Computed example of a mutant assay.
Amino acid sequence: MQEGRKRVALLMGSFNPVHCGHLAVARYVLAQDLAEEVWLVVSPRNPFKDAADLAPFEDRLAMVRLALAEIGDPRLRACDAEAALPRPSYTIHTVEYLRESYPGAEFIILAGSDIADQLPRWYRSDELRRMVRFLIYPRNSGEASPEMANAPMYGIDSTSVRKSVAEGAPLEIGVVPQSVSDYIRAKKLYAMRTIEQWTELIAEKPETADYYFERGRLYYRNNDFGKAANDFNRALEIDPGHTAARQMREMTEAIFNFRNFDIYNP
């Protein structure tokens, strides 16, 4: 520990959506005095995850803020720093940015034991591990840090939450904070939408790349490859780092090359 500097633990993730498991880990770190603050750093896009069902960054950040407001502990903060950084988001870039922005803080990274084995794959991982200390909390598999060995383990994950919402099942108490559950329903996040519904959302927020991507996926499923390609191209114009849109555009272009005719406006 570096004397005189505030210890800030960074719980980084997509938070798609934030759930009670995330919050339990953050509160445990504070209760055990492993850090003086915990910041939930919302990632615009995780380079190791599929962005296909990723809610807009603004909505995920809003849900984190709602969840923390419901707890009411000022030591828990939502952090939107990665919104200002190049995409895809790499942890070392975030840490470098935060260290420059908050020179009085000593940053610690919170990570689940199930991803600890992935650390060597992280961008500039050796340098990152020299820059910051890691606290590994127990999750599904892998070994936790000794300080985190007794941290609560929740059988909750964001994928299951999204699946429940898409299937129309109610979210059980204790899965996500009530304010987050209400927000998901109000914004109709993670629900299956039609092309017409995505078109309405695009009319409301025409600069949201994810909306074009989702509509393009539906066109693709309907074999309307020309319109799909147009939507993937538009998504990439708005967000050149949209990995999923780039992948889908490549798949669509492969179909065009196979059919050997031009049915879209590039």
Results as ranks from 00 to 15, higher is better:
residue 229 A to V: 10
residue 139 R to K: 07
residue 101 S to E: 15
residue 237 E to H: 05
residue 245 A to V: 09
residue 194 T to Q: 02
residue 49 K to S: 02
residue 120 P to V: 06
residue 27 R to A: 15
residue 100 E to G: 09
residue 99 R to L: 09
residue 14 S to F: 00
residue 60 R to V: 02
residue 211 Y to M: 01
residue 72 G to E: 11
residue 109 I to P: 03
residue 78 A to R: 01
residue 47 P to K: 00
residue 235 A to L: 01
residue 62 A to H: 08
residue 129 R to K: 13
residue 195 I to W: 00
residue 156 I to D: 05
residue 11 L to N: 09
residue 203 A to N: 08
residue 228 A to I: 02
residue 263 I to K: 02
residue 65 R to P: 15
residue 1 M to S: 14
residue 121 R to Q: 13
residue 131 M to Q: 12
residue 262 D to I: 13
residue 67 A to I: 01
residue 210 D to A: 11
residue 153 M to Q: 13
residue 105 A to F: 07
residue 151 A to W: 06
residue 70 E to R: 08
residue 101 S to M: 15
residue 42 V to E: 03
residue 103 P to Q: 06
residue 66 L to W: 13
residue 127 E to S: 08
residue 151 A to E: 10
residue 115 I to E: 15
residue 114 D to L: 02
residue 155 G to P: 04
residue 185 R to N: 09
residue 161 V to P: 01
residue 185 R to I: 10
residue 30 L to R: 15
residue 212 Y to L: 01
residue 99 R to T: 13
residue 4 G to N: 08
residue 170 P to R: 04
residue 15 F to C: 03
residue 121 R to D: 09
residue 65 R to E: 08
residue 250 E to I: 00
residue 206 P to I: 15
residue 256 F to M: 04
residue 49 K to R: 05
residue 20 C to D: 11
residue 129 R to F: 02
residue 265 N to R: 05
residue 249 R to G: 01
residue 22 H to W: 14
residue 85 L to G: 01
residue 230 N to Y: 13
residue 115 I to C: 05
residue 169 A to C: 15
residue 12 M to Y: 01
residue 186 A to C: 14
residue 221 R to N: 04
residue 47 P to C: 00
residue 8 V to S: 14
residue 88 P to N: 02
residue 112 G to A: 04
residue 135 L to K: 09
residue 181 S to H: 11
residue 29 V to M: 08
residue 66 L to Y: 10
residue 45 R to N: 04
residue 113 S to E: 12
residue 162 R to P: 05
residue 17 P to Q: 03
residue 144 A to M: 07
residue 212 Y to F: 12
residue 171 L to W: 05
residue 104 G to M: 05
residue 146 P to W: 06
residue 11 L to F: 12
residue 148 M to F: 09
residue 101 S to N: 05
residue 93 H to A: 12
residue 132 V to G: 14
residue 84 A to P: 01
residue 172 E to W: 01
residue 149 A to K: 14
residue 145 S to R: 05
residue 255 I to S: 02
residue 23 L to D: 12
residue 197 Q to R: 11
residue 66 L to Q: 14
residue 169 A to T: 03
residue 155 G to C: 05
residue 26 A to C: 09
residue 224 D to M: 02
residue 149 A to H: 06
residue 152 P to S: 08
residue 236 L to R: 07
residue 181 S to W: 00
residue 162 R to W: 04
residue 242 H to N: 08
residue 244 A to I: 12
residue 249 R to H: 10
residue 157 D to E: 07
residue 170 P to W: 05
residue 195 I to K: 12
residue 36 E to F: 09
residue 214 E to I: 00
residue 149 A to C: 12
residue 79 C to M: 12
residue 36 E to L: 06
residue 36 E to S: 05
residue 25 V to A: 14
residue 85 L to A: 01
residue 244 A to F: 03
residue 75 R to T: 06
residue 241 G to V: 01
residue 220 Y to H: 10
residue 114 D to M: 03
residue 122 W to D: 07
residue 223 N to E: 06
residue 6 K to I: 10
residue 197 Q to F: 04
residue 206 P to F: 14
residue 60 R to Y: 10
residue 218 L to I: 04
residue 213 F to Y: 09
residue 224 D to L: 02
residue 2 Q to S: 15
residue 91 T to S: 04
residue 136 I to R: 10
residue 107 F to E: 05
residue 255 I to M: 06
residue 222 N to I: 00
residue 159 T to I: 14
residue 135 L to G: 14
residue 14 S to E: 08
residue 60 R to H: 11
residue 53 D to M: 03
residue 248 M to C: 05
